[in-house]
């Protein structure tokens, strides 16, 4: 392409005015901005002292829980959909024949490695019986890696602790928003 090609658009550096070149007006303006901001309210949250609670716990994706049904049994039917959907491969399920007549299988072991989990919530979406859910509990700590591998009992205990303040996320939504016949049409 030649320099005098009509398609080339030659741009000129914008000329600065005298005030701009003196820097001083801009400096004074900048100082007044920072001076004003310095006197404004601080946005720091002193975290351990002022704990953060998610504004909408239903939407937050924190530690998992395994939901119980009305009889206090684990809801999970060991279908492996969550383990299949999991991009981090952090769910490990060992299925066994269910001792109850209303389903074929139940999880004998249900283990989630909370350190491997990326908290994407795809297990929650995949679950057909709303057995696995994410809670708003996020400040999870432990001294060892082994502590952070949650087994079935631990996950059920998370449900016991959070069931009061956090109702089932998906079940209520489905029942209220989408009647069964309408859902079939889609």
């Amino acid at each position: 392409m030649r320099p005098d090609d009509p398609d080339i658009l030659w741009l000129e550096e914008p000329k600065l005015t005298l005030a701009e070149r003196l820097y001083l007006p801009a400096i004074i303006e900048g100082l007044s901005v920072t001076g004003r901001v310095a006197l404004q309210k601080k946005i720091t949250r002193q975290y351990p002292d002022e704990p953060y609670r998610p504004e909408d716990p239903i939407k937050y994706r924190g530690v998992h829980r395994l939901n119980r049904d009305e009889q206090g049994r684990v809801k999970c039917v060991a279908c492996f959909l969550c383990a299949t959907a999991c991009p981090a491969h952090c769910i490990d399920i060992v299925a066994a024949e269910a001792p109850w007549p209303d389903r074929e299988k139940y999880p004998e072991h249900f283990v989630i490695d909370e350190l491997r989990c990326i908290y994407c919530g795809m297990c929650e979406e995949a679950c057909p019986v709303d057995a696995i859910e994410l809670t708003s509990f996020y400040d999870l700590t432990g001294w060892t890696r082994e502590e952070m591998i949650f087994d079935k009992e631990k996950l059920l205990s998370v449900y016991d602790q959070t069931a009061q303040q956090e109702p089932l996320r998906t079940a209520g939504f489905r029942l209220a928003q989408t009647p069964p016949d309408e859902a079939e049409e889609h």
Binding site: T34, V37, A38, Q40, K41, K42, I43, Q46
Partner: peptide
Amino acid sequence: KIAAYIQQRIGPN
């Protein structure tokens, strides 16, 4: 402290 205040933080406390 001045850096923190200008950035709306609290600074070392």
